[in-house]
Write a protein that binds this DNA or RNA. Structure first.
Length: 426
RNA sequence: GGAGAGAUGGCUGAGGGGUCGAAAGCGCUCGCCUCGAAAGCGAGUAGGUGGGUAAGCCCUGCCUCGUGAGUUCGAAUCUCACUCUCUCCGCCA
């Protein structure tokens, strides 16, 4: 959420930022609502002030045994006025909040200007795509041929965009989760969390999924809970409505969760294989940082995610998203894209963002400066560290051998019971 | 799912219509004392949002005692609904 004060004081700058992001927002209407609210608030506060004073006086008169009927009568009328004004203000407030919740974050000044993914900037590359002197297979063929992935039975028990992992395939998924968590907790200083997968509406609003993206979310029919689309949602919200100590910042959390996405608008894209699923696994990194450190924290968070791919020996590149390609809540985003032979291209496997105070304002997450003084909003960041299903796909495809087997990356072997190669169904 | 109890400031915990945004204790901060520390003594110590002032650790309005509504001139205090926590019972991996 943007700061209404900023919008009020600097509507042109906000408009400019929104344009960069490609958002259409009726700022005039918002400002009108705000002005009216402030005007009526001034009125009602004057009335309340008077009522408070007179009520005190009534108390004194009663104690002294004197008559207070005139004042009481007058205040009855003032009370009616206050009630009417309060009601109007409540209505204005609700409308204002609705509008604010639907305005996206503004891009940071270092974000390149552009309308869509074509304007994204490659920042760096690591490794080089493998050259195969045999017909390379896509992971959906490798996985099925080796008995690791069963899309047909997943379709039977659930439906499209679900996968059943089997044998070493299932173990590979589990091994990756453990490998990633061990790396981030053991070497990168993150605290491991295991949060609920179902959350309430306030939590979804806190991180920015709602109210705008209702159709992308799964909702549980009989109690209104939402299935989390990413661990970012529960983990960022653990400090909702809290005032943190400055000396406790930055806070680093990592969590493995399943993630659930309806992806209403994505029908027809990435229909084969593990790339786009209704349920997938992800290890997430979340940070709470002081505002003046958040961009340094974004760099290190991105490096932490990259380290996963390096250790697995997967070629990747880092892309700085342009203003028009960034998500609703983000001020700056680096995508990590892993090389996928079946796409003959790099494919997103992690998205690392600084939300500045956009989420903190929605979720009311603040800190008190060490020297005392006014509370400030923290900056929140997160990034995938990394998406597990896509990593499985990348390993299968990049580590495939001419005989259709798959070599296990060395870093993963301890997690695979020493297995070095997946050769086929028993 | 059933029955009961509860929700107050960083924490414990009083207050049950009128100078209560709130006793007391703990904690914390500052000062005194000390070579230093502890103890002791003194002072301060919730959040939000407006206004005043050139600005402020200065003055000031309004709101907040789980949330929302109601009664009243006036609500932490009375009424209703909801949420959450705890205890017991039932069910359950």
């Amino acid at each position: 959420m943007l700061d209404i004060k900023q919008i009020r004081a600097n509507p042109e700058r906000v408009r400019e930022g929104l344009t960069k992001k490609g958002a259409q927002v009726a700022l005039e209407e918002l400002l009108q609502t705000d002005a009216r609210r402030r005007e009526q608030l001034g009125r009602v506060e004057t009335l309340k002030s008077r009522r408070n004073k007179v009520s005190e006086e009534v108390g004194r008169l009663k104690k002294a045994g004197k008559d207070s009927e005139t004042l009481t009568q007058e205040m009855r009328e003032v009370g009616q006025e206050i009630k009417a004004l309060d009601e109007e203000i409540r209505g204005l407030q609700t409308r204002l909040e609705e509008q604010l919740l639907n305005i996206p974050n503004l891009p940071h000044e270092s974000v390149p200007l552009g309308p869509n993914a074509s304007a994204n900037q490659e920042v760096r590359r690591w490794g080089s795509p493998p050259r195969f002197d045999f017909p390379a297979k896509a992971h959906w063929d490798l996985g099925v041929d080796l008995g690791l992935l069963d899309f047909e039975r997943a379709g039977k028990i659930s439906g499209a965009r679900f996968t059943l992992y089997r044998g070493p395939g299932a173990r590979l998924e589990r091994a990756l989760i453990n490998f990633m968590l061990d790396l981030h907790t053991g070497e990168h200083g993150y605290t491991e969390l295991f949060p609920p997968y179902m959350v309430n509406r306030e939590t979804m609003i806190g991180t920015g999924q709602l109210p705008k993206f209702e159709e992308d979310m799964f909702r549980v029919a009989n109690n209104g809970f939402y299935l989390i689309p990413t661990a970012e949602v529960p983990v960022t919200n653990i400090h909702r409505d809290e005032i943190l100590k400055e000396e406790d910042l930055p806070l680093y959390y990592t969590a493995y969760t399943a993630c659930f996405r309806a992806e209403a608008g994505a029908a027809g894209r990435d229909t084969r294989g593990l790339i786009r699923q209704h349920q997938f696994n992800k290890v997430e990194l979340v940070k709470f940082a002081r505002p003046d450190h958040s961009y340094a924290e974004l760099e290190s968070l991105t490096r932490n995610a990259e380290e996963v791919l390096k250790r697995l020996g997967l070629p990747y590149r880092v892309v700085l998203l342009c203003s028009g390609d960034m998500s609703f809540a983000s001020a700056k985003t680096y995508d990590l894209e892993v090389w996928l032979p079946s796409y003959n291209d790099y494919k997103e496997i992690s998205s690392c963002s600084n939300f500045e105070e956009f989420q903190a304002r929605r979720a009311n997450i603040r800190f008190r400066p060490a020297g005392g003084g006014k509370t400030e909003f923290v900056h929140t960041l997160n990034g995938s560290g990394v998406a597990v299903g896509r990593t499985v796909a990348a390993i299968m495809e990049n580590y495939q051998n001419p005989d259709g087997s798959i070599t296990i990356p060395e870093a993963l072997r301890p997690y695979m019971g020493g297995l070095t190669r997946i050769t086929g169904p028993k």
